[in-house]
Simulated assay, not measured.
Amino acid sequence: MKASEADIFIIPGLDNSGPDHWQSRWEAKIRSARRIEQADWSNPQLESWVSTILRDVEAANRPAVLVAHSLGVVAAVKAAHAIKPGLVKGAFLVGLPNVESDEHVPELIRHFAPIPEHKLPFPSILVASRSDPYCAYDTAVHYGNKWGSTLVDAGETGHINDESGQGPWPEGLMTFANFMRDLS
């Protein structure tokens, strides 16, 4: 599948993705991409975030592909089984935060726990870093396996955002392009 044949939904995490974040760069570069805008990026509410994802994705005119980062990953996975079957063709999930761990994430997002452990109803990739301060690599591997995701080891890349030096993130864009090519 080509990106031009799908509605690409960018789903940022806490505080949104700034202009130098790879999600913002991809949104500007990929014509069929658009951001799911949450009502409050700095005080996230689980039900609101999930219902916004459902509303936007179900209004798609073409097959949908989710591109989620950080807390957006948890929200997207929680929304996955409520989305009309067959509408989402795949999900590119990056930088899962362990919302079940006080040592990894702020209390502000702990109410997004528990992280679902059921297989996703569409193909997915989970990109995880070995040095992510918000989630231990083994935890990401555990959830990726539960979701049926293909795991991509991003090495020592922090939270895979602009603060960790992954602004344009060309390796991620190549991985995403290969993922899109394999979707039908």
Rank of each mutant, 00 (worst) to 15 (best):
S42A: 15
P12W: 01
H69L: 04
I109K: 07
V152E: 09
L126Q: 07
W26K: 10
Y137Q: 05
H81A: 08
S129L: 07
F9G: 06
A140D: 07
K2W: 04
I10S: 01
W41C: 09
A75G: 15
P168M: 00
K2V: 00
F92H: 11
N161I: 03
A140M: 02
K84Y: 02
K89F: 01
R31C: 01
G86F: 07
A80K: 03
D182M: 08
I36T: 06
V105M: 12
M180C: 04
A177C: 00
N145D: 09
P170A: 12
G144W: 03
D162Y: 00
V57T: 05
S42N: 12
I115W: 08
I10D: 02
I115K: 10
L14P: 02
A140W: 06
S149F: 10
D132L: 07
A128R: 07
G95E: 06
V67W: 02
A113R: 02
R25K: 15
R31Q: 11
G144E: 06
E27G: 09
N178Q: 14
L71E: 13
E107D: 14
D56K: 13
G18M: 01
F9C: 07
D40G: 12
R130Y: 03
E117A: 13
F112Q: 04
Y134V: 00
Q38S: 02
E27Q: 15
S184I: 08
K84H: 13
L54A: 04
E37G: 02
E103V: 14
D153F: 12
D138K: 13
H118A: 14
I83P: 03
I36H: 04
L14V: 11
K146F: 03
E5S: 14
S124T: 11
H21Y: 02
D20K: 12
A154R: 03
P168R: 11
G72D: 10
I36K: 06
C135Q: 10
S164Y: 01
E171V: 10
A82F: 12
A60T: 14
S42G: 09
A60Y: 08
S149Y: 11
H111R: 12
R110H: 10
I160Y: 01
H21N: 09
M1N: 03
Y137A: 04
P85D: 07
P12L: 09
P116S: 10
A128C: 11
Q23V: 04
R25T: 02
S32P: 01
A154I: 04
K89L: 11
P116Y: 11
F179K: 04
F122I: 07
D20N: 13
T52S: 15
W41F: 14
H81Y: 03
P133E: 13
I125D: 01
G148Q: 07
W26T: 08
L87G: 03
E103D: 15
N43E: 10
K119R: 15
A128T: 05
A64G: 07
E156R: 12
Q38C: 01
S17F: 00
K146G: 00
A80H: 04
S70I: 05
V65L: 09
G95F: 03
G158H: 06
I83L: 13
L71R: 13
S164D: 09
G155M: 11
W49H: 05
V73G: 11
